[in-house]
Every structure is written in structure tokens, then in C-alpha cells.
Design a binder for these strands. Structure first.
Length: 595
RNA sequence: GGGGGUGUAGCUCAGUUGGUUAGAGCGAUCGCCUGUCACGCGAUAGGUCGAGGGUUCGAGUCCCUUCACUCCCGCCA
């Protein structure tokens, strides 16, 4: 392509172009002014070309004064660089362009932040001047990576026989799940649309409509608080759904897709071939979490029973165990010679996390096995041998113990597992460890209200033969509900859906919804299921998180073009913002602001 | 809603036990410099030390309140 702005882009010229007259346009990335000789790095999306001008040229003085990041067009001739002056860092480094004339296409004020710099700088300035921030190499490349990943996924999904459809952005609010973003309806006073938290019902309706395999790079909106890996407001999912499938069919498609995608865009090694399947129950025990980082070799073991023995004298834990607490431990291999500070730091860290601390002792051998360290003396030889049997611990290893009620215990042991592995440098950062978490419970009990609630997706199919499901013990019902996890990050949730209306009513009734409730709140879905619904299931991997993993970024804003800050504000566009009284009036809204 | 961290020049940061006129690098402006690629050298400008209150002879520094950003908990079927 050649037009009045350029004959080549800034990453195109090579030795073979020497002698040609060219036109280049771009931003002034950097100037090196030698007084009578000026080097000027011109940058565009594609790369950098060094341009040069000296005092002989009548444009020299003017060009010398131009502000960095100004957009200019230059006319000039491609010249060879002498061997000593070749720059191997850039692809155009063997040549430079001798500037003959130039024209300013876009002026630039004094910069609020440097573009040409690897320096970190404050998030609010980056977000306010996102268009400048996005010019910087690292994030510019992240956003390009994101685009390529999405294109690749689209093409893979097409190859796998999936059709891409759009679903409505203005839809209805539904109970369950996250807080909705609401949009007032002008034509229907007092009524509101909701932005979809996910196209969940629509994708199931697409299956009922007979399309067999659907996918979409779907925007999802949830009005919840942000985290480093969670944008406030909106994010994207690779939403997919398949008819006439079992759980394994979904796994098969997703594993293929993720393996291909991660191999295409990363050189990091896969720690497993086929993704391991771990039941929810096992994950909560061994890792204290349903999103375990399997790069971390540490395992949690339950040793509550040890504290029922008479020859164990650790009374604090024994009392807690008698009142319903449990004891779980983490074994670290061959840590007997670690300094006292190593152990105390972890104990102090645990206290900072709000736990009562982490007790510890080390297994050593004198005449027989003994526990060394602050609480070692409370354990008999036999009890230590039992611990070694349960945990696989050996002489020279250390045991970290926590005692608490189940949920708090899971939380602290999970955090401790990460913390200890980091301190001992056990995690292979240059790898991907995927796993499936399966067999989620259909329901869970809310700890404060004691109410039975759906633990994940209310539309999931319960496991077992339908007429044999025991609704008297709803907490024991498992669902065909699964998550996929990579390096401790939850990439997505999915399920085989419940396509049988009567079963749906039954499950909703357990969670306190009447048939009328269900008919009203999920009318589109429930109605459709009465007209010949195929068995179906799907999943929805998070695009942002996939790109985060591939770009090796810890923060989702580093792979999001125009993110909001933690308070869900867009500092560049000034969103959200107030609206005029007329707008409110049209929508039949009035404001009652809290002080 | 709760807890932690940060806030000093346009940007990144230093600032000792509370003590003279608050510093550096980058950037900006001006001057010198014809082979740099983080060019070099010299000079100049640039500060409500986030804001407010307090303690003190004296506060960037100590105390209280508050704001902004960020990380975490809650929340996220």
C-alpha cells in the first residue's frame, strides 16, 4: 500500500531498499540531537525506523525543536548504515532514512507521562491518558496478542463445527448470581432491562432452537467489586454450548481448544498431558480451594483424628477438635535445617491473614522419631508415626498445622500452601498446569442464614438417575457442573444443563422458589424446555484471563484496552456521569441520593 | 461494608531522631556538540510535600480526620 502518507511502514525498510525515495509517517519516539546532526526514531504500530537529518538541510532547526510523540510525515532516501552503526535491536537497524522534507500531521503537547520508557507509573494517570499508555511497547503488544488470540479461537471454533451468534445486550434481570447492571426503559415506565451476566439462557434457547453447536465471544456484565484478575463491570467469555453431549464431550472440545491456543501463543511447558480431573471434595481437602495451582506440589492432609489420641497432649487443638474444629497440615520436605525465622515468618504471616497462626514442628530421629520445635514435645512416637503414615512425611520434614472450623480451615491452609511454596521456591513459573474440577454439589447452605442455595448454576443437571435422586438430603446431590483451572486461576465454569422442566421445578423448590416464581423469573427458558429440548451442555472460558496467562500478566487491566479503575470509573471517558433532568424525566426516574 | 499499602516537581523516586533555603534522574526551556540508538556536556524554570485539623519554639517527618489510587476480605449462580 502506498499513499500520500506513506510508501512503507516503520518496520518495513531493509538493505534491499537502499537508494529508494520513501515516505514514512509515524510518531516521534525518540530524538538524539548532536547539534549539527539529529537522529529521530519514527514509530508506528509495526516498528521503528531511524531517520537522520543534519544542519545542511534547511528543515533542521524546525525538526530539532519538535516535541516527542508528534505525528509527522517524512520524505527521504533510504541509506545504508556503516557496520559499526548497525542496530541489531530493531529489524530496520541496517538502514536509516535521510530526511529531505517533513510535515507535521498531528502536534503533541507536553506529555503527562513518558511513552518511551519501561518505567511503571501510576494507574490513574495511565487510565486517564490510556491512548498514550497504549502506545507503549508492552501493553501495545498485549492488546495485539489479545486480538490474535480471539481470531485464533474463532477459527478453531469454526473448525470444530461451532456457529457464532450474537445474543441481546438488553435483557431481563434474573435472581441468582451477581448484581445486575440495570437500564431503565423509556417506553415501559418503571421497568428495567438488565445487561446479561452471561448469555446463559440465550445459549440454552439456541440449543432448543436446534442449532447444535454455538459459540460467541460474549460480553458479560456483573456489578461486583473488582480484583486484580477481575474487571469491575464487564469482561469477555468464550461462551459455548453443545447439544446431545455428555460432560466428556465438552471436556474434549475445550481441552483441544485450550491446548491448541496455549501452544500457539506460548512456549511455556504444560505440566500435564490430559488435564487431570479432581472432584470438588478432593480439591477442597488437598488444596483448600476449588481453584488449585497444580504447579505447587504441596498437599494438605487432614489429621484431626490424631488429636483424639490420649498420647497427644496439645490441649489447645484437642479442645477445639472436641468442639467441632478440624486439623489439617502441610508437609514441607527436608526443611529441618531451615532457620527458625523461616518458620516464625510463616506463623506471623498466618496471623496477619486473620488466622490464629500456624503451629509447626519438625520430624527428627534420635533413638526414635521425635518432634522438634515449639509443639513437637506434645506428640508421642506412635502419634508421629501415624502422622507420617497419613501424610507421607519423612524424617527431616516439617509439619505446619492449622486448626479451625472447616471453611476457615480450608481458607487458611489454601493460602498457606501458596505462601509456603513461594517461600521455598517450589513453583515452576514457566509452566501451565490445567485441571478440571468436577462433581460440584448442586446446593450449599448459607452459613449465616442457614438457607439452602444453588452453589453454582441453577440450570445444571443433577447427577444420578432422575427418579432416584434423594431430595431429602439436597446437600448430597452432585451436579454435572465443572470448572477449568489453570495455574490457580479459574478460567471458566460450565455444566451439563437440566433440560427437564419437572426436575427444574423440583430443584428450584429446594432453593425456595415456587413453580410460579420459576415461571415468572425464568419464563423464556422454562417455557422453551416444554417444547422438545435436547440434552445439552457447555462452558464459558474467560477470554481476559486466558490472555493474562498467555501474556504473563498479573493484572487484567494489562490485557484490557480501555479498563475501568477499581471504583468502576472510566477516567478517560468520565463514566459513569450525571445525566440531565430531561433524561431522567423521560425515563420516569428521580434520584434519592444517600448522604 | 472491612483490612493493608501508597500519595513529595509534568513522570519515577530519595528525604536520617522533628531542625537552616525540600533534593536526584528523566521530561520541559535555553546553549554547546556530525554517528547516536537510555547519545553526551552546561544552565534555567518547575513544589499547597494529596486535603483539613492538631501537638510543638519548629512538621514532608508525630497524632487525628478525610480524599484518591491500589491489593486483599466480603461479593463474584
Amino acid at each position: 500500500m502506498s499513499n500520500k502518507y506513506r510508501t512503507h511502514n516503520c518496520n518495513e525498510l531493509r538493505k534491499t531498499n537502499v537508494g529508494q525515495n520513501v515516505v514514512l509517517s509515524g510518531w516521534i519516539n525518540k530524538k538524539r540531537d548532536h547539534g549539527n546532526l539529529l537522529f529521530l526514531d519514527l514509530r508506528d504500530n509495526y516498528g521503528i525506523t531511524q531517520c537522520i537529518i543534519d544542519r545542511e538541510n534547511k528543515n533542521f532547526n524546525e525538526l530539532e525543536k519538535i516535541q516527542l510523540e508528534t505525528v509527522i510525515k517524512i520524505n527521504g532516501k533510504v541509506v545504508n548504515r556503516s557496520t559499526e552503526t548497525i542496530n541489531k535491536e530493531i529489524l530496520t537497524g541496517e538502514i536509516e532514512v535521510g530526511i529531505e522534507t517533513f510535515k507535521v500531521l498531528g502536534t503533541c503537547k507536553e506529555l503527562p507521562l513518558p511513552v518511551f520508557s519501561d518505567q511503571e507509573y501510576a494507574e490513574d494517570i495511565r487510565l486517564k491518558y490510556r491512548f498514550l499508555d497504549l502506545r507503549r511497547k508492552k501493553i501495545h503488544e498485549n492488546i495485539i496478542l489479545r486480538s490474535k488470540v480471539i481470531s485464533f479461537i474463532r477459527s478453531e471454533m469454526n473448525k470444530l463445527g461451532f456457529l457464532e451468534f450474537q445474543t441481546p445486550i438488553l435483557t431481563s434481570s434474573s435472581p441468582e448470581g451477581a448484581r445486575d447492571f440495570l437500564v431503565p426503559s423509556r417506553l415501559n415506565p418503571g421497568k428495567f432491562y438488565a445487561l446479561p451476566q452471561a448469555p446463559q439462557q440465550f445459549k440454552q434457547l439456541i440449543m432448543v432452537s436446534g442449532f447444535d453447536r454455538y459459540f460467541q465471544i460474549a460480553p458479560c456484565f456483573r456489578d461486583e467489586d473488582a480484583r486484580a484478575d477481575r474487571s469491575p463491570g464487564e469482561f469477555y467469555q468464550l461462551d459455548l454450548e453443545m447439544s446431545f453431549v455428555e460432560q466428556e464431550d465438552v471436556f474434549d472440545v475445550v481441552e483441544k481448544l485450550l491446548v491448541n491456543t496455549f501452544k500457539e501463543f506460548s512456549d511455556r511447558e504444560f505440566l500435564q498431558g490430559k488435564f487431570p480431573r479432581i472432584t470438588y471434595k478432593e480439591a477442597m481437602l488437598k488444596y483448600g480451594s476449588d481453584k488449585p495451582d497444580l504447579r505447587n506440589p504441596l498437599i494438605i492432609n487432614d489429621i484431626t483424628d490424631i488429636f483424639l489420641r490420649d498420647d497427644v497432649k496439645f490441649d489447645i487443638f484437642k479442645k477445639l477438635v472436641n468442639s467441632g474444629s478440624m486439623v489439617r497440615c502441610i508437609v514441607t520436605k527436608n526443611t529441618k535445617d531451615k532457620p527458625r525465622s523461616f518458620f516464625d515468618n510463616i506463623d506471623k504471616w498466618a496471623k496477619d491473614q486473620g488466622a490464629s497462626g500456624l503451629a509447626y514442628f519438625t520430624l527428627e530421629k534420635e533413638k526414635e522419631v521425635v518432634g522438634k520445635g515449639p509443639i513437637g514435645k506434645f506428640f508421642s512416637k506412635e502419634s508421629l508415626e501415624q502422622i507420617m503414615k497419613i501424610t507421607g512425611a519423612e524424617i527431616g520434614d516439617s509439619i505446619f498445622l492449622a486448626c479451625d472450623k472447616k471453611k476457615d480451615l480450608e481458607k487458611i491452609t489454601s493460602l498457606a500452601r501458596d505462601k509456603i511454596a513461594k517461600d521455598l521456591n517450589l513453583i515452576n513459573e514457566n509452566s501451565f498446569a490445567f485441571c478440571w474440577i468436577v462433581d460440584y454439589p448442586m446446593f450449599e447452605k448459607d452459613e449465616t442464614s442457614g438457607k439452602i442455595e444453588f452453589s453454582h448454576n441453577p440450570f445444571s443437571m443433577p447427577q444420578g438417575e432422575i427418579d432416584k435422586i434423594n431430595f431429602d438430603n439436597p446437600l448430597d446431590i452432585l451436579a454435572y457442573q465443572y470448572d477449568i483451572v489453570c495455574n490457580g486461576i479459574e478460567l471458566s465454569s460450565g455444566a451439563i444443563r437440566n433440560h427437564i422442566p419437572e426436575l427444574m421445578y423440583k430443584l428450584f423448590s429446594v432453593a425456595g422458589y415456587s413453580k410460579e416464581n420459576v415461571n415468572e423469573k425464568f419464563s423464556g427458558m422454562i417455557n422453551a424446555l416444554n417444547y422438545g429440548a435436547p440434552p445439552h451442555g457447555g462452558i464459558a472460558p474467560g477470554i481476559d484471563r486466558i490472555v493474562m496467562l498467555l501474556a504473563n500478566e498479573k493484572n487484567i487491566r494489562e490485557v484490557t484496552m480501555f479498563p475501568m479503575n477499581q471504583n468502576a470509573q472510566d477516567l478517560m471517558m468520565n463514566a459513569p456521569s450525571e445525566v440531565s433532568n430531561n433524561q431522567l424525566k423521560e425515563l420516569n426516574l428521580s434520584l434519592k441520593l444517600k448522604k
